[in-house]
Structure formats: structure tokens, C-alpha cells
Design a protein around this nucleic acid. Sequence first.
DNA 1: CTGAAAATTAGAATTATTCTAACTTCACCC
DNA 2: GGGTGAAGTTAGAATAATTCTAATTTTCAG
Lengths: 144, 144
Amino acid sequence: MATQNLDIPKIPEEIPSELAGLRMTKQRREVYSVLLHDKDHPTASGVFRRVQEGLPTISLATVYNCLDALVEHGLVNQVNFDREPSRFCVNQSPHVHFRDEASGVVHDIIFKDGCKITDLLNLPAGTEVTDLELTIRGKLPKVF
Amino acid sequence: MATQNLDIPKIPEEIPSELAGLRMTKQRREVYSVLLHDKDHPTASGVFRRVQEGLPTISLATVYNCLDALVEHGLVNQVNFDREPSRFCVNQSPHVHFRDEASGVVHDIIFKDGCKITDLLNLPAGTEVTDLELTIRGKLPKVF
DNA sequence: CTGAAAATTAGAATTATTCTAACTTCACCC
DNA sequence: GGGTGAAGTTAGAATAATTCTAATTTTCAG
């Protein structure tokens, strides 16, 4: 099942030796780099396959470790659709994930300016939201 | 003397023999009944444990089958938090799931009147939304 | 350089879920 | 009621994403 992104990504030339307090080992750098280049929400195995091209000796466990570390430090988002394998994308401006049922493609959807989802909800006053995940399934219009 | 109340059905006396086009076998009825009674988003194993009290011979596979059937027919919602085991609740008015990080408890949160989440999103005009899942993590205020 | 801490690795273990194949129950028709 | 085919249930095996373990390698501070 392929995925793709509606936005055109910009790729930083160089990843520094430390990011967000996370030491950038060559494995982590390669994993992060794969996600920066291919913004199509790959699974851990997908990342593994691509990273192997540059680092043939890397292990799947390391890919999981690296993804965990990157997610932990806020550099990467972990996206879950139902119980399917987790998918990963670089963390950008807040966005939600839309899966087109016809093609299976996952698109990033951004909010309209100034819109906050929690404004719509009857949350108790004073509730502190630390994380929020919205996934949508549907059909895109013909033109897409 | 034999006990006399073994086949008296639990809680909602009148779950009909068919619901939403789904034949209500005694296993499905019991699973549904558990979810109607305990609205705390149990996992499949949790449902299994509770259903066993009334139907000691039921198998875990059947619980999964029943939950699938109930979800398929729109009577039950399947809720996924990250990669944790799926949780289940009876389908009611549209709501989102809030997990309190302090207690781990999952709360149902309803929308404010007239609010539609898709109004906030830059979806291509004409996009048809078939399903939508919003999960939130956070901390409730002290008073809760 | 050296020792400790952190990271990586291969493979085993875990676990929620699905599959399989045999058995049972059900609904319908005679 | 009894026969029949479909639907549902069951126990146990299989699957697969992820995590764990224990051993090795790399990194960094002193």
C-alpha cells in the first residue's frame, strides 16, 4: 500500500551531530534522513529496507530503537491506523492524517489558520492536552 | 435442587434477536451486554474475562469474532491507542477519546453543539469522510 | 589512552490478533 | 418433527509487529 504527501518537502543538506538533545549516531542519522527524503509514512520495516541501502549492516532492532529515540525527542511522529503497523513521518506543523480509501494513500492535512480542535470539544475547563491524534478515512474527489 | 436463574439474561432484558441486521446469538448478546453495562473501554481480553462469568465455555476467538461482527454492524466502536490492545465501547453519539495520563482512564468527550471537526481542516473540496478517529492524551484538572 | 556509559546487533521472546479445521447450532423447507 | 446447508463457535496453531536479552561495539569524558 503506497502513501504519498500533498506537500513538497524541503530537505536540509546536513543533519548536525546532535538534534533536540539526541546524539546523532550514523544509524539515527540515516533513519532520520530516510524520513526527511521520503515523506510517504513508511512502516518500521519500510524504513529498515531503505536504510539498508546506505547502511547494509543495520539491524531491524536498531531501526526500532532509532525510531523510538526520534519520536521520544519530538523529531518524528508515529502514526497509527487501527492495528496496522505503525507509520512514521518527520514532525512538522500540526497536521492530521487522511487515508484515501480508494488508493490507500495517506495524506497530511493541515488545519485552517487559527483553528484549534479542542475548541470544538466539551473538555472540562483546565484540562491539559499533551498529545492529540486525528486520523480520517474517506474518499478524495475525482480530480485528485 | 437446581438453581433456577442460570438462563436469565443480564442487564438490558430486551436485546432483540436481531440488531442492525446482525443475528444475536447468545455469545454476541453477552458480549454486547458486557459493553452496554461496563462503559470503561475494555480490551478483547477484558471482555472475554467478563463474558466468561455468564458463559464459561465461550472462547477468546469467539469474543474476537463477536466484537468484529458488532463493529462491522456499527453497534460497537473499536478504539486504538497507539499500539496498545484495541478497546471497545458501544457506539453512541459521535465522541472522541481522552486518556488521562495520571490515571490511564479513558473518558468519552462529546463535541460542542453544531461543531464538525472537518470544518477546521483544509481538506480538498468534495472530500467524502467515511470515518474519523480522534484520540487525545492529557491531564484533567485537579477537581476531577 | 582508558573505563564507563550508550548504542548497536542478532536472535529469541512476547503478545494481540488471525487462521484453520472440526464441531455445533440455527433457520428454513418438506 | 427431521433433514440440510449455512452460519456460528471452538481450541489450538500460526502470524507478525514489536520488545527483550545478552553480547559486542562505539562514543565520550577525564
